[in-house]
């Protein structure tokens, strides 16, 4: 049994866990590290604005206690762009008008990348009709259902959906292509 050990890797940099175990990963990012890309909407798991990737899986950082994430690899919106420019999904959000105020956007983008990884791993969704299928197509229904944990109060959903669909079709959405973009950034 140990109180807390090791660091949390955040965008490639080891960060010691907070002294107070009640600090959320979201507050660690924003308040302690000054990484303001990740947004706080509801602070209760309901809006998805605080979505980040942990070992390539999407989570809501507002309900995550930072101490629970030592030894893990956290990636936020702040680290998605590489030296060669924006992540393909970021670019697609601009091209498809995937935002107005932009507050939900970092969460939408991280969530979509995590979502693509789930699709590759065969994770079913509420609208998946055949649970025994080996491959699940990202239909419009699948995309909307899988992204339903991310709300947009500006109502930019149509642009969001088309940006994600296009990036996915181009094979540039999965955590693997995102990792490549990150590596290039280092």
């Amino acid at each position: 049994m140990y109180a807390k050990s090791g660091a949390i890797r955040i965008n490639g940099t080891p960060v010691p866990p907070p002294d107070d175990p009640r600090v959320s990963l979201l507050d660690l990012l924003r308040e302690t590290l000054g990484l303001h890309g990740t947004k706080k909407g509801c602070n209760q798991g309901g809006c998805g604005a605080c979505t980040v990737l942990v070992d390539d899986e999407r989570i809501v950082s507002c309900l995550a206690l930072a101490v629970q994430y030592t030894g893990r690899d956290v990636v936020t919106i702040d680290a998605l762009a590489g030296e060669d420019g924006l992540h393909p999904l970021q670019q697609a959000f601009i091209e498809h008008d995937g935002f107005q105020c932009g507050y939900c956007t970092p969460g939408q983008i991280c969530s979509a990348i995590g979502m693509a990884g789930e699709l590759e791993r065969g994770v079913p969704s509420h609208v998946t009709s055949d649970l025994s299928a080996k491959r699940i197509e990202l239909t419009d229904d699948e995309l909307r259902e899988r992204m339903s944990g991310n709300l947009c109060r500006c109502g930019a959903h149509n642009g969001i959906v088309s940006a994600i669909a296009q990036t996915h079709r181009a094979g540039q959405l999965s955590p693997r292509s995102s990792t490549k973009a990150r590596r290039a950034a280092r």
């Binding site: 798991g45 998805g48 979505t51 899986e57 999407r58 989570i59 809501v60 309900l63 995550a64 969530s111 995590g114 979502m115 789930e118 994770v123 079913p124 969704s125 509420h126 998946t128 899988r146 992204m147 339903s148 944990g149 991310n150």
Partner: peptide, 12 residues
Amino acid sequence: VVAGASGQIRNM
């Protein structure tokens, strides 16, 4: 299970 919560929350 997939009828509950969101993708992010189900991962946690």
